[in-house]
């Protein structure tokens, strides 16, 4: 495992994604979108009702978080990842509609893994419990949908060198499984 970080830019191109391997460290720069439990429910309902989504999913990353309110002079508050598995039910549909990456913490279901493989997508794990640290990598934040469910609203985040680790790569290789199996 190399010590170096791989630089990534959003939107995430397929060609770039399929080269990434589980366990590699990356730094993400560009726009990403937040969504967690309640926002996922709403997004999936919009898709099922064939209504437009608040942002285009194509090649984008959804980040599972709901930040704390920003302190004075800050762009955002703490914004670390929440447990991804609560979104397992919704992820395959979003990936089939063009979403390229998802980011959170913890293990994913077999269904999500299959959907990642099928759609040549990717699951990033970022550092759970590092909300204050990660807030420094966010340069701008704006609520673009569902303000009524704050703090679970969808934020558009402009991030710079946001650190993450490839958790499940486009071939379906699962970092946790590899790490825990080898022991």
């Amino acid at each position: 495992m190399g010590k170096e970080f791989i630089k990534l830019f959003t939107p995430l191109k397929r060609e770039k994604v399929i080269k990434l391997k589980a366990g590699e460290k990356v730094l993400i720069t560009g726009v990403i979108y937040t969504a967690r439990d309640a926002a996922h429910k709403k997004l999936v309902r919009l898709i099922k009702e064939k209504k437009p989504l608040p942002f285009l999913l194509d090649d984008q990353i959804i980040y599972y978080t709901a930040p704390t309110p920003p302190g004075r002079g800050k762009v955002i508050g703490a914004c670390g990842p929440t447990t991804s598995s609560r979104m397992d039910k919704y992820t395959p549909l979003l990936l089939s509609r063009g979403l390229r990456g998802v980011m959170g913490k913890g293990q994913r279901s077999v269904e999500v893994k299959e959907a990642i493989k099928k759609n040549e997508a990717i699951y990033f794990i970022t550092i759970g419990g590092a909300g204050a640290y990660l807030s420094r990598r966010v340069k701008k934040a704006e609520i673009i949908a569902f303000p009524e469910i704050e703090p679970e609203a969808i934020y558009k985040l402009w991030v710079e060198d946001f650190p993450a680790i490839v958790g499940i790569d486009a071939r379906g290789e699962d970092l946790y499984q590899n790490l825990w199996r080898n022991k």
Binding site: K25, T65, A66, P67, T68, G71, K74, G77, A78, C79, G80, T82, I127, G129, A130, G131, A132, Y133, L134, S135, R136, P163
Partner: peptide, 25 residues
């Protein structure tokens, strides 16, 4: 080790800048 050192840095930032250590307060 990378994770642990990041978590320590996270706590230091949280204490100094009064940003919650985790978004789940």
């Amino acid at each position: 080790k990378f994770i642990l050192s990041t978590l320590i840095e996270n706590i230091n930032i949280s204490r100094e800048e009064k940003i919650p250590v985790c978004q789940d307060t």
